[in-house]
Simulated scan of single mutants.
Amino acid sequence: MEAARVKAWGLGFGVFSSVAFGTSGAFGKALIGAGMSPLQASWTRVAGATVVLVPVMLALRWRVAGAAVRRCWRVLLLNGLMGVAGCQSFYFVAASRLPVGVAILLEFTGPVLVVAWTRFVLRTSLPRSAAVGVGISLIGLSCVVEVWSGLRLDLLGVLAGLGAAACQAAFFLSAERASGQIDPLVMTAAGFSIATVALVFVAPPWHIPWHVLTSDVAVGRHTPPGWLLLVLLVLVSTVAAYITSVAAVQRLSAAIAGAVGYVEAVGAALFAWLTLGEHLSPVQLAGGVIVLAGAFVAQRSVASHEPAAGEMAAMELAGVTSTADERSRTT
Rank of each mutant, 00 (worst) to 15 (best):
M1I: 07
A3Y: 04
A3I: 13
A3S: 08
K7C: 10
W9F: 11
G14H: 02
V15T: 12
S18C: 07
T23S: 07
T23W: 00
K29Y: 04
A30Y: 02
S37M: 03
P38C: 02
P38Q: 02
L39S: 13
R45A: 04
T50N: 01
L53I: 13
V54K: 11
M57F: 14
R61Y: 15
A65K: 02
G66C: 11
C72K: 06
W73K: 01
W73M: 06
R74Q: 05
V75C: 02
L77C: 09
L81S: 00
M82A: 12
M82N: 05
A85M: 04
G86S: 05
C87G: 00
Q88D: 05
A95N: 12
S96H: 12
S96T: 12
P99F: 01
V100Q: 05
G101P: 06
V102N: 04
A103L: 06
L105H: 05
L106C: 08
T109R: 05
T109P: 13
L113S: 11
L113W: 15
L113D: 05
V114G: 04
V115L: 00
V115D: 00
A116T: 15
V121F: 10
S125Y: 09
P127N: 08
A130M: 14
A131T: 15
G135D: 14
L138Q: 07
G140C: 10
C143T: 09
V147G: 04
G150F: 12
G157A: 00
A160I: 06
G161Q: 02
L162A: 02
A165G: 12
A166Y: 07
C167H: 11
Q168P: 08
A170K: 03
L173V: 14
S174I: 03
A178E: 09
I182P: 01
I182Y: 02
D183V: 12
M187N: 07
T188Y: 15
G191H: 09
V202Y: 02
W206R: 09
H207M: 10
W210C: 10
A218V: 14
A218Q: 13
G220N: 01
L233F: 14
S237L: 01
T238A: 04
A240I: 06
S245E: 07
S245Q: 14
L252Q: 03
L252M: 13
S253W: 11
A254V: 13
A255M: 08
A257Y: 10
Y262K: 11
E264G: 02
A269E: 02
A269S: 13
T275V: 11
L276T: 07
L276F: 01
H279T: 08
L285D: 01
A286S: 03
G287M: 06
G288V: 11
V289F: 05
V289Y: 00
V289N: 00
I290M: 07
V291M: 04
L292R: 03
G294F: 09
G294C: 06
A295K: 09
F296C: 11
A298E: 05
V302I: 13
A303I: 08
A303Y: 15
S304N: 13
H305V: 09
E311V: 09
M312V: 14
M312G: 05
E316A: 10
A318N: 13
V320F: 11
V320I: 15
T321Y: 13
R327Y: 15
T331L: 10
